Simulated assay, not measured.
Amino acid sequence: MNLFNGSFVTLEKGLNYSALKQKTLANNIANADTPNYKAKDVSFKEVFTDALNNAMTANRTDSRHFEFQSSDHPAIVTKQNVSYNQNGNSVDVDKEMSDLATNQIYFNALTDRMAGKFNSLTNVIKGGK
């Protein structure tokens, strides 16, 4: 019996993505003045693909069958061939701050949804009282 229908797992993966995005953006902002530092970003496509692959389970009945493997490390992509400063740095602080605010809104939406799930569960446990 699947009590939560995978929704908590999906929300957890979304929160993990948001936390990694936050760390990456904070690292970019911290290195805004570092010469030759290249800005990094978290690839949503890779995170989404990993989430889909993790949802699949496989039972190998023969050694010739393909193995299903998933990585727990989302892809952090370095932005190459971009330079905003004369010292070779590719961090655009305004864009990073904008992405930080967007990520905060995304994180808050996920935590609100998870709180709603827990409130519903509490309501069921209490018998609707």
Rank of each mutant, 00 (worst) to 15 (best):
M1V: 14
L3E: 08
L3N: 11
F4K: 06
G6A: 06
G6Q: 09
S7W: 03
S7D: 05
F8T: 03
V9C: 02
L11A: 07
E12N: 11
K13N: 11
L15I: 11
S18Y: 02
L20W: 03
K23R: 14
L25N: 04
L25S: 02
D33M: 07
P35C: 01
A39I: 04
K40P: 04
K40D: 04
V42N: 07
K45W: 00
E46C: 01
D50W: 00
A51C: 03
L52M: 12
N53R: 12
N53V: 09
A55N: 08
M56R: 15
N59R: 14
T61S: 13
T61L: 12
S63K: 14
H65D: 15
F66W: 02
E67A: 14
Q69C: 00
S70D: 06
D72K: 11
P74R: 06
P74N: 10
A75W: 07
V77D: 07
T78V: 15
Q80T: 11
N81V: 00
N81S: 08
N81I: 00
V82S: 09
S83I: 10
Y84G: 05
Q86C: 00
Q86I: 14
N89K: 08
S90P: 11
D92C: 10
D92W: 06
K95D: 04
E96F: 07
M97W: 08
M97G: 00
D99R: 06
N103T: 07
N103V: 05
Q104I: 09
Q104A: 15
I105F: 12
I105Q: 08
F107I: 01
F107W: 14
N108M: 12
L110W: 02
T111G: 03
T111M: 14
T111S: 13
G116C: 02
G116V: 01
S120F: 05
S120E: 07
N123S: 10
K126R: 15
K126A: 05
